[in-house]
Design a protein around this nucleic acid. Structure first.
Length: 588
RNA sequence: UGGGGAGUCGCCAAGUUGGUUAAGGCACUGGGUUUUGAUCCCAGCAUCCGAAGGUUCGAGUCCUUCCUCCUCAGCCA
């Protein structure tokens, strides 16, 4: 048997293939790096770039990060890590009306939480597109001087009308053949605030008949008097994404600019612009290249910004960090871990095929990580009394529970056993169903880490509900003693001494939507909300859990993984969120 | 109906310049271990690569036609 188990390498994908080929061809060896972003002349003065490749994660600071962003973050930072490169965190803040410092801060926090670092020696590699506005303005003038951009005074409606359709070519703007000097003058006037918002735009001059609508003279600068979170009121014209993004990449010497599929159509303009600016001497080869991958779709989850905003604003959830939300802030509160997200990203791969990832894949990743990380504790979530009738009333004895079955070095803790215990309601059935091997009259089970007990019956209230279960214990069967194996039992249930238990609020979260594809067809996605996505319970926990600190994760044995809520936990009085259940082959 | 993409096992996803038995993961099904019906371990799981033709000694990989899905007409990103 050849049992050579090599650690599974990170799955190969088309982006890695491209990078490996580029590297093999020494495509980037001539690159210089000025130590900070800059144009060709500035980088030419620098040293050879210590980074073999440069990637970037370029969010617009206009909202909160979600699981889809985690895929992109892990991808870009992961690639940089694996190929001796560097990944920049860059805020793509070219539209001041939608952006704010609050989002900058929360995005920075979440990328850090995921465990990524953009610092490299003295290089911070934390950048803002808005810091390149001077370069961009300069690039725009260069385009005008090459006769490749013009100021268009058509109204937005006229522009739309003249853009043509998917099947018909567009028509040239009446302003398209303005002279270079006039364009330059007018563009400067735009910059100097001589023209009103929306009265004109600067457009690249390419081809109004191009089958690719993005090449039909795209707008590259608009007039907008808006306060910018970073540049204040310095500018009243702002570059469009189409124009700004390639320049940002080039200034930062990005080698592989990775984005999602919907930008495929923009790639021809991306290349066109960079080539023109290289011809004009502003940039040097090799120029950045854009590559596109399929964005994440997760079953039972919505990731669209519009829908997430609606869920929050209409208060279907408690806020942006509601543990049921797919935001990273929510996932963090839920107890999802950075390691889990990295595993998830590796597991789902990267490709150009539209796909839907099953939500359980994410859950499995979290389970896998938590299984190794989380210490075990005992919690009774749906308590019912168990009385050991032959156990002395005043007695209490110590039982020893290992903190982690896979890590004996983490030791054991004491759990007190007394005559009256809390056990799970579902661990007793007066009339057992087929295959049930827990507590039922005359059946024996082990009280985990304690004694084997024999069920003797139960008490019921007027409605017939079981209120107390009775049993007798077998004195020689205590776990850890020589006689513990003298009686073999199949069932093994957890318990907490009623006298010692910590009663605590526990939130049991379930998926936010009851349909795999929320809002599919013409259904309103809100109709698919799972009405039982959260259940608040009063649980009975083992005493040591009282000392849990915010964000501590545990496995509550036989239940799942739980985390002390980072917002609502108080020292000495934590509350818990269920992160994910354990797999359960019995309930199927 | 124009342009740009994508279609490999229930869900993802590898498949080098065509070369012999189509990786891997998740799920699933058996079996084993186990004081968590968890974990862990072992085994099984696509004669077939959207469809149909064609080229070839040989095709998921090349050619032709067709089908399905995604995407693009913001002075958003």
């Amino acid at each position: 048997m050849s049992s050579e188990k090599t650690p599974t390498p990170a799955a190969s994908n088309f982006i890695r293939a491209i990078i490996e080929k580029d590297l093999a061809q020494n495509k980037f060896v001539s690159r210089k790096w000025a130590g900070k972003p800059g144009d060709a002349s500035e980088h030419a003065k620098g040293e050879a770039d210590p980074a073999k490749i440069r990637t970037r994660f370029p969010p617009e600071p206009n909202g909160y990060l979600h699981i889809g962003h985690a895929k992109s973050i892990c991808l870009n930072f992961g690639l940089a890590r694996d190929y001796n490169g560097i990944c920049h965190l860059r805020f793509d803040d070219t539209n001041p009306e939608k952006e704010s410092q609050e989002y900058v801060d929360s995005i920075t926090d979440m990328v850090q939480w995921l465990g990524f670092n953009w610092q490299n020696g003295n290089e911070k590699n934390l950048y803002f597109a808005s810091n390149y506005f001077d370069y961009m303005y300069h690039a725009a003038e260069m385009l005008i001087q090459q006769g490749l951009a013009y100021v268009d005074e058509q109204t937005p409606d006229e522009m739309r009308a003249n853009r043509g359709s998917l099947t018909e070519p567009g028509k040239d703007s009446p302003y398209r053949n303005r002279g270079i000097e006039e364009n330059l003058t007018m563009f400067r006037e735009m910059r100097d605030g001589k023209h009103s918002d929306g009265s004109m735009v600067l457009r690249a001059k390419i081809d109004m008949a191009s089958p690719n609508i993005n090449m039909r003279d795209p707008a590259i600068y608009r007039v907008r008097r808006a306060h910018h979170h970073n540049t204040g009121d310095k500018w009243c014209i702002y570059p469009m994404y189409t124009f700004a993004h390639p320049i940002e990449d080039a200034l930062e010497q990005i080698t592989h600019s990775i984005c999602t599929l919907e930008f495929e159509d923009q790639r021809p303009f991306y290349d066109w612009l960079l080539e023109r600016l290289a011809e004009a001497g502003l940039l040097a080869h090799p120029l950045p290249k854009q590559y596109e991958f399929a964005r994440l779709n997760l079953t039972y989850v919505v990731l669209s910004k519009r829908k997430l905003i609606q869920l929050v604003e209409e208060k279907h959830v408690s806020g942006w960090d509601d543990p049921r939300l797919p935001t990273l802030a929510g996932a963090r509160r839920r107890g999802y871990t950075p390691e889990g997200f990295k595993l998830f990203t590796d597991r789902i791969g990267v490709s150009k095929a539209d796909s839907w990832i099953e939500y359980t894949i994410l859950e499995d990743c979290m389970r896998e990580v938590l299984n190794l990380q989380a210490e075990r504790r005992i919690a009774v979530l749906d308590p019912i009394k168990l009385v050991i009738d032959n156990y002395p009333e005043a007695q209490s004895e110590d039982c020893f529970a290992p903190n982690h079955p896979l890590k004996p070095e983490l030791g054991k803790r004491v759990v007190p056993l007394t005559r009256e215990l809390w056990i799970e309601r579902e661990d007793f059935m007066e009339v057992p169903s087929k295959g049930y091997f827990r507590l039922f009259p005359d059946n024996m089970v082990r009280l985990r880490y304690g004694y084997v007990v024999k069920c003797t019956g139960c008490e019921k209230d007027a409605q017939g509900n079981v209120t107390v279960v009775h049993c007798d214990y077998l004195p020689d069967t205590k776990s850890g003693t020589p006689g513990s194996d003298s009686v073999k039992v199949k069932g093994n249930i957890h318990w907490v001494s009623a006298q010692h238990a910590y009663e605590c609020e526990v939130r049991l979260y379930d998926r936010l939507f009851k349909e795999a594809h929320a809002g599919e067809g013409d259904r309103d996605f809100l109709e698919d909300i799972n009405p039982n996505s959260v259940t608040l319970i009063a649980a009975q926990l083992e005493p040591s859990l009282k000392d849990a600190k915010a964000e501590d994760s545990f496995q509550f044995e036989r239940h799942g993984y739980f985390v002390a809520d980072r917002k609502d936990s108080v020292m000495g009085k934590p509350v818990f969120n269920r992160t994910v259940t354990l797999k359960d082959a019995w309930q199927k």
